[in-house]
Design a protein around this nucleic acid. Structure first.
Lengths: 173, 173
DNA sequence: TTGACATAGTTAGTTAGCTAACTATAATGT
DNA sequence: ACATTATAGTTAGCTAACTAACTATGTCAA
């Protein structure tokens, strides 16, 4: 996401702010640091999952299936919940089915539709991966007490609400 | 990065925590929200840059060049600073050179090496893109005063220091 | 009831990243 | 001096994402 290693130093920010006076240097610094921390977290998650032979996309599909009471969903719903295209979901499911972690069940009611079901092997895989992931995440976040976590969420949601103004065509929104 | 749209609801988290007692639900919630906000910010940045015909990777290269006093660097250094492979940097530079935003200058001292220089067109492009980006970013972050930004940076750095324990093979680090 | 449109899933082709291998050049140690 | 090793950049081939187009099926209204 933000692979940039060399975040701007204060003097670089000052130099850019001189040429572009609209620059808000503390906004830029916080923004870039946020992207950087999140990006490194995502890479660390990749590394954690790869030890179990999983990639983020496929892992999320398993989790979404486990959320369902009958461990079953459809490619369209999964794609929507995961925020990927249906074409991408086809590929994710292909990979998971080849590994035996999910299987396709053709629907009787709607012959266009397919149900994707977590297999026993898929549940067993999660039963190994999730405790490892949760344990590591607990350690990673242990420096933040409950108050700090709440504070973080509040700050993030302030930024989140500002996102439309980063992308908006003009003053709308 | 984290494309997941459906963040877990409190009851889903409770269900998972019941099966996996090591789970730290507030840690999980903050972690996922951080990834989610950062991911949406990155997508918004993509959208902002695409209006100017740029992609994040190429844009960062232009910025890295502008940081240099002589507007010049080498593919290896650029790759290292951007955190991509040298092969990827070759592709980024190819694209920028075809757009006339940078050009390659062969080094006399070391005949293996190439200098990458920002062209006038490249600087002109930045002079359009950067004020737009900086202005939008200022708006996006305006809900956070200086104190909140400092707070955010501190919370992020606590998480950042925890990343090694997310990826570490065992108790080391 | 049937023609137009909508929906579910897949396939094909593109893209931007990666690793590994390659060419050319430089540096180093015996 | 010269064989070995390291470095700079590129090329080739892989992957996982995307969009667009396609097949099959379902829905709905004139």
């Amino acid at each position: 996401m933000l692979q940039l290693r060399d975040l701007p130093t204060p003097d670089i920010l000052a130099k850019f702010a001189e040429r572009y006076p609209i620059a808000d240097v503390t906004a830029i610094a916080s923004f870039l640091y946020l992207l950087r921390v999140a990006s490194d977290l995502s890479l660390a998650l990749d590394a954690c999952l790869s030890k179990h032979g999983l990639l983020q996309g496929r892992w999320w599909v398993l989790i979404l299936l486990m959320r369902e009471d009958n461990l079953t969903s459809t490619p369209s719903l999964l794609a929507e919940k995961l925020g990927v295209s249906r074409a991408t979901m086809t590929g994710l499911i292909d990979g998971l089915e080849q590994s035996g972690l999910v299987h396709r069940v053709f629907a009787q009611t709607d012959r266009r539709s397919v149900f994707i079901q977590l297999t026993n092997a898929g549940q067993a895989k999660l039963d190994v991966v999730m405790p490892d992931y949760y344990g590591r995440l607990r350690q990673c976040m242990q420096a933040l007490d409950e108050e700090k976590r709440t504070q973080l969420n509040q700050l993030l949601s302030l930024i989140y609400m500002g996102i439309p103004s980063l992308v908006a065509t003009s003053g709308s929104l």
